[in-house]
């Protein structure tokens, strides 16, 4: 269960642009978008007027970031992100709410180490392919 430091707040207040911190206190990116979905999806696939969507995931990475930057640069940024994804999936990196430990004024704390997050791929690539081969990289 996520521990929310405040009962009522806006996305700008506590979520958007906030620092994600993993379970060991390591920086794990910033939140760029939010995913809202139907809490009890209709098996037939239709929406329901009776149920309001709820927050289900925090989105991050270049695909979520691009549209916020806007303009041609933003489009290009998101397109680069999609290309880097490589799996043809144009959906941003998701951090399901189940992985979020606490949301407060200073940070958004996660329950898992950042190596297990879906947003970790680019970082891992840079670490393994560029930084690790250099002498004294600490690996």
């Amino acid at each position: 269960m996520t521990d929310w430091a405040h009962h009522r707040f806006t996305a700008n207040d506590l979520l958007l642009d906030r620092q994600l911190v993993d379970s060991r206190g390591m920086m794990a990116g910033r939140i760029d978008d939010l995913e809202l979905s139907d809490p009890e999806p209709d098996p037939a696939g239709g929406g329901s007027a009776a149920r309001a969507p709820v927050l289900t995931a925090l989105l991050c990475g270049p695909i979520a970031y691009g549209p916020r930057l806007g303009g041609r640069l933003g489009t290009w940024w998101a397109a680069t992100g999609r290309r880097l994804r490589g799996d043809g999936d144009g959906y941003p990196c998701r951090i399901p709410l189940s992985l979020v430990a606490r949301v407060d004024r200073m940070q958004v704390r996660l329950t898992s180490p950042r190596e297990l997050l879906p947003s970790y791929r680019l970082r891992a690539w840079v670490a393994d392919k560029v930084i690790a081969p250099l002498p004294g990289s600490g690996r």
Binding site: M27, R30, V130
Partner: peptide, 26 residues
């Protein structure tokens, strides 16, 4: 750059622990 994107940064950990930060420096 690292602080803008929320990456880990700094010299306290070995370079591989702040890979993109070190990459930007390089």
């Amino acid at each position: 750059v690292a602080q803008y994107f929320g990456w880990s940064w700094g010299k306290a950990r070995p370079p591989v622990g702040a890979a993109r930060f070190q990459f930007v420096c390089l």
